[in-house]
Design a binder for these strands. Structure first.
Lengths: 260, 260
DNA sequence: CCAACAGAGTGGTCTATACCTCATGATGTT
DNA sequence: AACATCATGAGGTATAGACCACTCTGTTGG
């Protein structure tokens, strides 16, 4: 596609204004600082006010700026990351400052079990890569993880042996993980899980089943079993759904407050 | 001064267009159907095209509509709710088609225990409303829930007895829940919990601790204990973090596909 | 029969201007 | 000093056109 991003100095004046404001917010200004007024930008760029507003509105909806009528437009605080992301075990451990290690328990292509086939949307018995691993944090067993990926999506995925990161491997094989859904539930560990996780019998585990979607449907199904005493999930919660009425764009006046 | 906030029903033409489109999308049209063109709306409402576009753009950013250059504007599929929301037990059960019932186990104002005080950011020993409830779905015990709310925030919160919905009560007392954070972990139920949840000993439970924030800090701390065999949490996962550069207005055409 | 083209229709960008509402600070007035 | 008023300047809404880019479709040529 010649949708060449870079260059094209001419195209789209509002993008110029936008880029200018983005740079300004990122480099020159601090959170809460006002950006130039719409009329000022109008003159600086020699464009009409509607064009300036177009640029600003885009940044407002992206959370970069916020507008307050009668006062101005301000650099908004980086908004809390309200989305739980498709992170890997390694990333999660890194965030916690722990070292992650892994032992592959099983690896290879198998015929998809019924449930797996259903979740992945492939015909039962279709070939799927299968990987089962024990994951440790600072050497201590933390979880057992099992994953299935349709062979048809990435035939050579396991050619170099089981990859250290399935997500990375999927990416390099043209199957970028786009989004996912995960279900969490508490359960009692099975005997085998107790062994692999080095737990006593009747211990609680957190079971997570995850379906990862790519550009064209489900790319992976995985089931993880975490030690209940060593793992917990943090979930940010967005405000309750507001019916419909726009009424308040609610600029969330981050400002004010603690300024002496 | 009568800075009358309310009123202004008529004003704002773009809201009329917006409301019309919302109704249209909700009642008349199916997902994927086109809405009237911008020029058509211009004439129907006797407004300028910029006004129509203002209304449409708002709905696009809300996910109600999507635009495709050269083709038109369409009712978009209800987008996946990528945010887990501050929902109440009642709402959760309703979504599952179950009837929710509640038994209040304990209710009143108490001195905040140390941990509660710390989480809520009040001084230890400060008065907090306390509510402990058993929650059932279709009559079967589902969870035990305990909540603490600083009395200072809403002194009369429990004046009419423990409210059926704490979130609704907070709202009516001027402490709108804005966002929250929840931590989930698996554990073994205590003896008391086993009794209240009608479980045998050594059963797994999902423990959720939630801090709810209002406009001005934490408004509530709650701890829930769900039956592991009857409750699970669904979490949508956003794509791995994209660097910074928006570059891409990325209209995300979503369309195509099923159109014959 | 199929490819190429032209036209119509849709959203995308942009201008130049007008008047409104709201927040703030300077100026008066009490 | 304390309060009221007003001017200023910010964003908010709205107009009436103009031309561009893209998608379709029906027509026309080969």
């Amino acid at each position: 596609m010649p949708t060449e991003t870079g260059s094209q100095p001419t195209s789209h004046k509002y993008l110029k204004v936008r880029d200018y404001l983005v740079a300004l917010a990122a480099e020159e200004l601090a959170v809460g600082d006002p950006v130039p007024s719409e009329r000022a930008l109008t003159q600086r760029f020699g464009v009409s006010r509607m064009t300036v507003r177009h640029a600003i509105d885009a940044l407002v909806s992206e959370g970069v700026l916020e507008k307050v009528q009668g006062r101005g437009t301000f650099v908004s605080a980086p908004r809390m990351d309200f989305e739980v992301r498709l992170s890997t075990f390694g990333e999660q451990m890194q965030r916690l400052g722990l070292s992650a290690s892994t032992t592959v328990l099983d690896s290879g292509a198998v015929a998809a079990p019924a449930e797996v086939a259903a979740v992945l949307g492939v015909s039962p018995g279709a070939q799927v890569h299968h990987l089962r691993r024990q994951r440790r944090a600072d050497g201590k067993p933390m979880a057992i993880e099992e994953a299935w990926i349709p062979v048809a999506l990435a035939p050579r995925l396991f050619d170099d042996g089981p990859p250290p990161s399935l997500y990375d491997a999927l990416r390099t094989h043209g199957q970028d993980p786009q989004w996912g859904e995960e279900t969490l539930a508490a359960d009692i560990a099975t005997r085998e899980e107790c062994e692999l996780l080095d737990m006593s019998e009747n211990s609680a585990v957190l079971r997570a089943t995850r379906r990862t979607h790519g550009d064209d449907g489900a790319v992976m199904f995985s089931r993880s079993c975490f030690r209940g005493d060593r793992y917990q999930v943090w979930v940010p919660l967005a405000p309750p759904h507001v019916p419909e009425k726009p009424s308040r764009p609610s600029p969330a006046p981050t400002t004010s407050k603690e300024d002496s």
